[in-house]
Nucleic acid binder design. Structure first.
Lengths: 238, 238
DNA sequence: TGTACATCAGTGAACGCGCGTTCACTGATGTAC
DNA sequence: TGTACATCAGTGAACGCGCGTTCACTGATGTAC
């Protein structure tokens, strides 16, 4: 990697980092070339050496956010031994929650109302990143299945349409096969988790104390584990 | 009500309606005085006869949105007879879902990342409206309790901090008392429901077919009812 | 019922501002021979 | 190693645009007597 390429990569990193900082401190999802440039001690036109467009930068931020979230989940999950599926679920869910609380703007950027100008780039970069991020949870269920720790989920009405959709999506990532109900249970789990996390990250649960929210989260993910068939045996009592 | 007051009220209604239409067709949460005025065949300064500020209008829209959502939930719920608690839950949850799908911008306005400039007005108008909206679900549980249809929820770890927070919030709206676990179960129910609804409204479940999403929703709210102690007996099999 | 006055809705011009983006340019960094 | 050229980062000036908001005003609608 040439020297020029290195400084160029560093500048790109700095631009993105500056953009994130501005988002955080403004509390918005908007990001202005002129503000970024000013914060970096540069002029706005210089941005065009690195991004074709303002949208181009936003797309890059979105792709990065998905990668970051995915890595955060995977890293947290993998600090818990492979046998302790319940602990891995807990760790992954907590990472999801913490990431959203730390980066509510990014969270809304990738999992909120999509920006009007935004279209997933042709190469599928973003959708690829998003899949890797969210299907970190899937490997949990696959592991549980593999180690024989997956109980049948508490579902009475498994719908073939749902199963087929998820199965197809999953096939693109892993050849693993799971029992029918599990495909649906994973979606219930993600939706339920996401609801708590989104509401909290946007401050809509802040009429509760921090302790209350922590306890609620603990109970929430425990309940989710129960109904979706994940083991909750060696769970620390909160 | 004088003639002037009537036309004034009509204009205010038209402004808000126009603002909503612009949001819908732009897909954004932004709303510009100049666009509203243009769409109404007026000039921008005329807006200042009705709203002190652009923020003033946004606040009005937020308050209206909460009222609208609350009314939609209550109306749907009350089309089902009082005895059929499970059916009432289903109707209310479906109303929540449909409202979000029809008005994703409004949904994000009231339950997404709060706008930076926004502060709940001093009179507490918005928070009052938001309470009325979301606590439409609470009355479900109160009714279930009153008619003896409320089973104990599937919760093993009820946290006093959570219970106290919710109990206090509820006391402001109704003097009714519920079993400890129920307070917590209501939050689980809302969070889980919200997760599905938000993800779908923002298009993040659109890799599934409409039928798949419908089936998943049905199963989702049924599962929620099960774990939170609401009866699911006479439930139409989806 | 008519008249004099007050209130209100809406206009048009203007101000100040900041944005995205283009363009011709300078100076530094890399490359070929 | 040095020289000639190409590439690239960044600047400063400028364009066009649209926004929120203010202000003095006109004309219509309501009110008091």
């Amino acid at each position: 990697m040439s020297r020029r390429a290195r400084t160029r990569a560093a500048t790109i990193a700095e631009i993105k980092q500056t953009a994130l900082n501005l988002m955080r401190q403004s509390g918005t999802i908007d990001v202005r070339f002129t503000d970024i440039a000013r914060a970096m001690g540069m002029t706005a036109p210089a941005m065009y050496r690195y991004y074709a467009d303002r949208d181009d930068l936003v797309n890059a931020l979105i792709a990065d956010a998905f990668n970051d979230l995915g890595e955060a989940i995977a890293a947290a999950r993998d600090t818990v031994p492979r046998e302790d599926i319940g602990g891995r679920w807990r760790a992954a869910a907590t990472a999801y929650r913490q990431w959203a609380n730390k980066e509510p703007q990014l969270f809304t950027l990738i999992l909120g109302l999509p920006m009007p100008g935004y279209v997933a780039p042709a190469g599928g970069l973003t959708s690829e990143a998003s899949r890797r991020a969210l299907f970190q949870f899937v490997t949990l269920f696959v592991d549980a299945q593999r180690t024989g720790q997956l109980r049948p989920p508490l579902l009475k009405d498994v719908d073939p349409a749902v199963v087929q959709c998820v199965q197809q999506k999953m096939a693109e990532l892993s050849p693993e096969k799971l029992p029918q109900e599990v495909y649906q249970a994973m979606l219930h789990a993600w939706c339920s988790l996401h609801g708590f996390v989104a509401l909290e990250a946007y401050g809509h649960l802040h009429w509760m104390s921090q302790e209350g929210r922590d306890a609620l989260f603990d109970s929430h993910i425990r309940t989710i584990a129960q109904i979706s068939g994940l083991p909750v045996a060696n769970w620390p009592d909160g």
